[in-house]
């Protein structure tokens, strides 16, 4: 049985298809920050605006073909597909687990992040700490990062993430556990000096 918010979303889509722009504007207002924030941390600030607009254009143009049921899942499928297309063209990002200076160095992005963060995080305000954490998320391995961002920015449940990505729920939970372990370590060590 769909949640009340999904029924509301479906009703808004129907109203929009009938010619009421304010219905889609309500949906946009509801999901704009989630989508944009997720895109900023997935495809990067430079491309986020373009992909965001493209995603919403697709939503409004294909709204008449939306069959109802779960608008959020439908929206995120569109956004994710566009992000994947865009990411294929983008440069690969550095992973937290990959050595930065070659094999002999052995120091990873996570090590550097943790050592740099130590002692300075406690002097930072919440916004700066958020920036550090965002940077840490950005350097997670792609599959872990995807789960974290769907959880943090898209505010999805693990079951929703599993359905959207076509991944078993246990795998999603495992990825989140590994990611949080890394993020928590970096963050807490930084705060405690």
């Amino acid at each position: 049985m769909p949640a009340a918010s999904e029924i509301d979303d479906d009703r808004l889509v129907r109203l929009f298809v009938a010619g009421d722009p304010s219905a889609m504007e309500s949906l946009y207002s509801k999901y704009r920050a989630q989508v944009y924030s997720w895109l900023v941390h997935t495809v990067g600030m430079e491309d986020a605006g373009d992909v965001h607009q493209e995603a919403w254009l697709r939503v409004v143009r294909s709204a008449s073909s939306y069959r109802g049921g779960n608008f959020r899942a439908w929206l995120w499928r569109i956004v994710r597909n566009l992000a994947i297309d865009r990411s294929r063209l983008a440069r690969p990002q550095v992973s937290l687990d990959e050595p930065l200076g070659g094999e002999e160095d052995g120091q990873t992005a996570l090590d550097m992040l943790e050592s740099e963060a130590a002692g300075v995080l406690e002097r930072m305000d919440e916004r700066e700490r958020a920036t550090i954490l965002r940077d840490a998320i950005a350097t997670l391995p792609p599959l872990q990062k995807e789960v974290v961002l769907f959880r943090v920015d898209a505010e999805m449940t693990f079951a929703e993430i599993a359905a959207l990505t076509g991944t078993p729920l246990n795998t999603v939970l495992g990825r989140m556990r590994h990611a949080v372990k890394k993020l928590k370590g970096a963050f807490e060590r930084g705060i405690n000096g």
Binding site: Q34, Y36, H41, M45, R127, L133, R151, V152, V180, L183
Partner: peptide, 8 residues
């Protein structure tokens, strides 16, 4: 921590 991260 994570849930309180501000969104862009």
């Amino acid at each position: 921590v994570l849930a309180r991260l501000p969104k862009a």
